[in-house]
Write a protein that binds this DNA or RNA. Structure first.
Lengths: 140, 140
DNA sequence: TAATTGGTTCTCTTTTAAGAAAACCAAAAT
DNA sequence: ATTTTGGTTTTCTTAAAAGAGAACCAATTA
């Protein structure tokens, strides 16, 4: 998890939330469990929330928040589409800057094209995926 | 580029190689251009090569190597498949460890399922992508 | 054989990021 | 109105990563 840009404490929190029986925990629990400072936990959570990896809910109008892993947030059509567009826009910008119409610009264009295909295909796959999930729910 | 785990020098080299007219450069050129140490360039290149972002060729049997961005390496079926499998294997391992058969385990299973779909679908998309590229080449 | 080229590797310094500790703050409870 | 709870923000320390510089090494070339 650290290899995907998480700090050690953030990585531990993420894994902890995944593995814990109730798949959620309070701020205090994590401070106690890891024996680290409140600031470390606060900053780690802030970061994890900002990248949609974790989110927080309150239960019954209490101020205390329960943090949990937000698995599906990372796979929302919106999130993926935004990232795909950002990527091919970057490639297209590079081509514009380079000007040169050589083989490498051709490659950039190809990869850009691949991402444009992905932008179209991913929602279709997600659609089918959601249907299989719905089906699974029904069977229960 | 730094946000995807590159060191500053590695990021600069990658961008430099992309934007340069000939889309390639020698070790010496980069040391001169950035005014950094040989070790910095050496280590950055070693890293970029290890993640298939850059590769090196020699020209005409010379010892000197020309480094260039390896765009397509990151989009090879093999590379993507390996990463997709690694991801859903991780999810499946987490489910095994958790044991608990609750809603969160269900979510993990769903995401794992999505990646298994991806493993099947991505090669099809890449196949179609390659055909559109081949078509483009023909027209030239 | 000696010198040069094209790097690599090692050790050391500097820079940056992570985390601790304490102060702080707003909401809720007393 | 004061205290407690559930954090956040700020400042400082420590630890880790990036890079410098020199030594080194294997191919080439002279």
């Amino acid at each position: 998890m650290e290899s995907m840009g998480l700090t050690p404490v953030a990585a531990r929190i993420y894994i902890y939330l995944m593995l814990s029986e109730e798949h959620q925990a309070t701020f205090e629990q994590m401070v106690d469990y890891f024996g680290v400072s409140k600031s470390a936990v606060s900053n780690a959570l802030k970061m994890l929330e900002s990248v949609k990896m974790v989110d927080a809910k309150t239960i019954g109008g209490q101020r205390k928040r329960y943090f949990s892993v937000n698995m599906k947030g990372m796979f929302s059509e919106e999130y993926l589409s935004t990232r795909i567009k950002a990527f091919y826009n970057l490639l297209d910008d590079i081509r514009t800057i380079r000007k040169a119409d050589d083989d490498f610009s051709g490659e950039l264009e190809d990869i850009s094209g691949l991402y444009k295909m992905m932008l179209f295909e991913i929602p279709l796959i997600l659609e089918r995926w959601k249907r299989t999930i719905a089906l699974k729910q029904q069977r229960k």
